[in-house]
Amino acid sequence: MPNPLKKLPFVLPLWSLLSPLVAVALLLLLGGAALSGLLIALVSLCLIAAVLAAVHHAEVVAHRVGEPYGSLVLAVAVTIIEVALIVSLMLAGGESANALARDTVFSAIMIVCNGVVGLCILVGGMRHRVLAFRIEGTSPTLAVLAALSTLTLVLPAFTTSTRGPTFSQSQLMFAGVVSLVLYAAFVFVQAVRHRDYFLPAEGVDDHHAHAAPPGNKIALASLALLMVCLVGVVGLAKLLAPSIENAVRAIGAPSALVGVIVALLVLAPETLAAVRAAMHNRLQTSLNLALGSGLASIGLTIPAVAVLSLFFPHALVLGLEPVSMVLLLLTFVVGTLTLGAGRATVLQGAVHLVLFAVFLFLAVVP
């Protein structure tokens, strides 16, 4: 008689195999061609499919290696390709794009700290009433994120070695080194020294624990397909960039809105993965994804653009405008109150989502 408790083998669904391949094939087929209305719709559809496939493969990898390694893999992979997208757009845009890195990194912070965190708490709170997480992992991560954000996005507006919201070359190199050191320290604490701080809180039912984990071959295949998905997502987002820039100019919005849209597209896989984790009462995993993405965005982007700025013919604008500084300060104050309790309800989620709505509104109407 067959054992009813025997776990079935893990199988990747067909759509998750085809979506990344179709996205990359479309990317290679179109190259740098200008997109018409029909092509814009097709590229957008393939982009959404690639995002969904990326979320699926990220969850497969996370299921195999466990938390917090799965969140770390997705955050680092997304950010590395995000850096490539930022650099390529800056090189193509010339001096008009010298603030793109600042706008994209700031947007990423606001998206993950307010949009993703708020949405996860709201969705999870509506389903599970009260969500638990570990203060030992979230509060120090937010502290590192606040320090990095201030050093790289606020301080350049007040330094006097150069005119304008920029760093001198030596200051930029120092900021890059500091960012890399702090991010490396965070990864060491998360993955090695205090891994237990980033696991789901005690008493939280993790549905992954009851499902058969994928084998090594499946996990490696998902990791490879995850990379293909992310290449497809970023490549298709870059194809859509000219259409996005034209739309931004058409509505009379500031150019900083392009950085917001780029960050929204690039962070889409992590956002969906975080929301799905919150729906299954795994808010700690959601916070690992959100805050880890913000840290990776600064900790990897700033060192990369610091080195590449040596070859840029124009200064790199990093300092935020006063309105953005106020939003950043308010975000970290509210985030500290939210993540310092160990529990969250829909109220905290609503507050963060309101801050995110304010950020989006001011990006269009400064």
Rank of each mutant, 00 (worst) to 15 (best):
S297C: 12
Q284S: 10
S286A: 15
L330V: 15
A250H: 13
R249L: 15
I261K: 04
E245T: 15
A250R: 10
I261R: 07
R276P: 05
N281L: 06
F332H: 11
A278C: 11
V326M: 12
E321K: 13
L320S: 07
I298E: 03
G259S: 07
P254H: 00
F312R: 01
R282E: 11
A256V: 14
L289R: 02
V326Y: 13
A253L: 13
L267N: 12
A263V: 04
V307H: 09
F311G: 03
T331V: 13
I298N: 08
G319Y: 06
L308N: 01
L289N: 04
P254L: 02
I302E: 01
Q284D: 06
A274K: 02
L272D: 00
L291I: 14
V305S: 05
A296H: 10
A274Y: 06
T271A: 09
L283V: 11
A273C: 08
L320E: 05
P254R: 00
Q284T: 12
L272Q: 00
H280V: 10
M325G: 04
A256F: 14
V258Y: 13
I244V: 15
L265E: 02
L318V: 06
P254S: 00
L308S: 06
T285E: 04
G294R: 04
A250P: 11
P322Q: 00
Q284L: 08
M279Y: 09
G319W: 08
A306I: 12
V323N: 01
T301P: 11
G292I: 07
M279S: 07
L328G: 04
A268E: 00
F311L: 14
L330F: 14
A278G: 08
E321W: 10
L329R: 06
A273P: 06
G292M: 09
R249F: 15
V317K: 08
V260Y: 04
L295H: 09
H280W: 07
P322V: 00
T331R: 03
M325D: 00
M279K: 11
E321F: 13
L328Y: 08
H314K: 01
L300S: 03
A277M: 11
L330S: 10
T271Y: 11
A274T: 05
L289P: 08
I244G: 01
V307K: 05
I244Y: 03
H280E: 07
V323H: 12
M279G: 04
L265K: 06
M279Q: 08
L289D: 01
F332N: 00
T301D: 02
L295N: 03
L328Q: 05
L264A: 09
R249W: 12
I261C: 10
G294E: 02
L287V: 11
V305M: 07
V275C: 03
P269G: 05
L257M: 15
A253T: 10
I251S: 04
S286N: 07
H314Q: 07
A247R: 07
A268T: 07
L272P: 02
V262A: 11
P254C: 02
R249H: 14
T331E: 00
V248N: 02
A250T: 11
L310V: 14
A250Q: 06
L264R: 01
N246A: 12
G252V: 10
L283K: 05
L289H: 03
S324V: 06
A274M: 10
L265A: 13
V326D: 02
A296G: 14
T271G: 09
N281E: 03
P313Y: 04
A253K: 09
N288S: 09
